[in-house]
Design a binder for these strands. Structure first.
Lengths: 181, 181
DNA sequence: TCGTCCATGTAAGAAGTTACATGATTGG
DNA sequence: CCAATCATGTAACTTCTTACATGGACGA
């Protein structure tokens, strides 16, 4: 994935919602947004530096306790413009749908009676079922009344993730049925 | 994605199906398997060299026409063992579900009445609908009688891709409905 | 002959992961 | 006081994409 440094725009988007520290940005990628993009802190901190050099963001320092200094970053007006341009620009649709080692493995298992199949499908099924449950809990927790006026995008991606996991578990179930008969 | 060089196993898997040239391997990633893994020839040729050095594959040269030499690669017994070990090993479930720039963009669009939303959703919808149709055509073409005994894995991943695209288009449709009311 | 596909490689650089490094805060 | 978490960075390495480079085969 060497493309157009999408990470920078996501950081701008997150900072537009509210000023954040590098640590908080890292956490954001571990929650909902992580369903569709992820990044480690080792990518985030350098990117923040670059964005600051490019005058897209600024930071001020917060002191907590005795000597801990936090850098809280916020968008500049330039950064806000960059973000809006990205949001308004055409989006290349996802090419393949990402990489899925499990799906590829299945591709190489030719016989429906392969002794490994049932266990593989069951194991993945358990994982995705659990994940689906977790996402559904998030949904009822965050949007008990369905789609909201605020945080609409958040609602959409959660819905997206749920549909994706639902489709995944249903596929695994159908595969299990197909290879058992 | 710096992990365990999964590409090498996929190449072994493809060569297990039948001996292939680097060019043919490249093509394979542009067809069905490309739905769940992709690679360019600039990754494939070097990987083939490494696999040959590691005695996982061998090649023989085919001459076609006047002077064109093709290298057709095949698995060694070692390579076959490596492949089987990979297939039998536990598979880490997909973490997030890959990266989806479009989904992330939506995340940052807070208001359901954002003037850009309808166009964005419609455009992506058209793309994924077309892709879905193409996949369904592939399915009826390759598996007119449904799941087959041979090529079962191929059937499974095609089914997977279809379900994924179906879920994607349904999500976009639901999103469109939600933001129009 | 001319364009399209076949065919194989290398190079440069971006993106992403893992590991290295360090230290503060907070709550039990 | 000790563990978990907060907090910020760098280094090394792998993976992946884009571009560079070259040439043959085949059909119109």
């Amino acid at each position: 994935m060497a493309q157009r440094n999408i990470l920078q725009f996501i950081i701008l988007g997150l900072l537009d919602q509210q000023p954040r520290t590098g640590y908080e940005l890292t956490q954001a990628f571990d929650s909902d947004i992580g369903e569709f993009w992820s990044a480690k802190h080792s990518q985030i901190y350098p990117q923040l530096s670059k964005l600051e050099t490019a005058q897209q963001v600024t930071h001020h320092e917060e002191v907590s306790g005795e000597k801990l200094v936090r850098k809280r970053y916020a968008l500049t007006t330039t950064g806000k413009t960059t973000l809006e341009n990205w949001l308004s620009a055409d989006t290349e649709p996802v090419v393949g749908g990402g990489k899925d080692e499990f799906a590829v493995k299945l591709y190489f298992i030719q016989r429906p009676d392969d002794p490994r199949l049932v266990q593989m499908l069951t194991k993945q099924g358990a994982f995705h079922k659990q994940k689906l449950t977790h996402l559904q809990e998030q949904m009822t927790l965050k949007f008990p009344a369905g789609a909201s006026q605020h945080d609409f995008g958040h609602y959409l991606v959660l819905d997206h993730a749920i549909r994706r996991e639902k489709a995944y578990t249903e596929w695994l179930k159908a595969a299990l049925t197909a290879c058992e008969k």
